[in-house]
């Protein structure tokens, strides 16, 4: 379970003070499939990174499975991300000099897993996203949709229970985007992973069990649309 309590994240730009998040509170249950929507600049990415332990809030706290993640040391928080969180980005963020398989191996490598296990598990993850046959390809030899699948595989290979996706379909055409969305849906259905994704697309938001709408750093709508 993820509990966000009164989180404010403010930036000072010269004279001006911007609150990317303004007193936000939110609870995400284990196994939730949640969409975050809202106009550009409303704080969606900020919310996602704050949940993922990547962005220390100005006020408030974030509690994941009972531990206050911003009370941890930065080393412990890195470990928390390694073991519990998978990030998926709009721009994929694969390392261009590594093959698909090697990209998926990175989180396992960071966790110090044995080389043979790394390869075995990374290949399993690639098969899960339907890319078993493309394991030895470099990112520039893969289509956008395939690259995003590799990124999804990288996000789930460490058996993270939380998958955070920041506009995962933003750089993909409609059809490929839909494929990625149904892949995420499948992972949630089959493995019960908690998935939170940011989207601009109303049809993508419809797939979610819960939709959170943001404006100006505040959560303005909370819709529960399961069944």
């Amino acid at each position: 379970m993820i509990e966000i309590n009164n989180v404010t994240k403010s930036y000072t730009m010269g004279e001006e003070k911007i609150s990317a998040l303004n007193e936000v509170s939110l609870t995400v249950e284990e196994g939730d499939f949640m969409a975050v929507t809202g106009p550009s600049g409303s704080g969606k990415s900020t919310l996602l990174y704050t949940i993922g332990g990547l962005l220390t809030p100005t006020h408030g706290n974030v509690q994941v499975n009972g531990s206050m993640i911003y009370s941890l040391t930065s080393k412990e928080r890195a470990r928390f991300r390694r073991e519990n969180v998978g990030f998926i980005f709009q721009t994929f963020e694969l390392l261009p000099y590594l093959t698909a398989l090697e990209n998926v191996m990175i989180p396992l490598s960071l966790a110090g897993e044995d080389s043979r296990d790394q390869e075995k598990w990374a290949l399993e993850a690639l098969e899960k996203v339907g890319l078993g046959k493309r394991a030895t390809h470099k990112p520039n030899e893969l289509s956008g949709g395939e690259q995003q699948r590799v990124a999804v595989a990288r996000g789930l290979v460490n058996e993270a229970n939380i998958l955070l996706a920041d506009e995962p379909t933003g750089n993909l055409d409609q059809k490929t985007g839909d494929e990625i969305m149904s892949l995420l849906r499948e992972l949630n259905d089959e493995d019960g992973q908690t998935i939170i994704y940011v989207t601009h697309d109303q049809s993508n938001a419809k797939l979610a069990d819960k939709v959170v709408g943001m404006i100006d750093g505040r959560i303005v709508t909370r819709i529960n649309q399961r069944n």
């Binding site: 991300r81 963020e93 966790a111």
Partner: peptide
């Protein structure tokens, strides 16, 4: 920078 950001998001600490 970007690559380092990715590594950090994947759980790399300062030691790494």
């Amino acid at each position: 920078r970007r690559e380092i950001g990715v590594f950090m998001s994947l759980g790399a600490d300062n030691t790494y």
